[in-house]
Amino acid sequence: MTSRLKTLGLFSAAALLLASGGAHAQALSAADAAVLAGPCANCHGTDGKSNGKIPPLAGRPAATLAAMMKAFKGETPPPGTTIMNRLSKGYTDEQIEALAKHFAEKK
């Protein structure tokens, strides 16, 4: 019984790794994405609903948000931006996709 459970456990762990494309890309749950998005609110507003000069994130298309985050990482970040070049480099493309989805769903 124990060994059967163990086998199943190992099997599902392997399946998870395969599904997420290997050890470097661990799947992010909605709860993980919400925590990942936590610090964004400090400038972009709670749930990405900005109350000032810093652009809002809430309800914008996921593809737009993800493309912007990836552009920030580049050697020539978009004009008028300051810290996002430094912050965006702290996130993998997979995390960026999860963040983009998280904020796109906030209405």
Binding site: Q26, S29, A34, V35, C43
Partner: peptide, 9 residues
């Protein structure tokens, strides 16, 4: 607990 992450500015 969800996976932790933090930032600072």
């Amino acid at each position: 607990a969800p996976k932790a992450s933090w930032a600072n500015t």
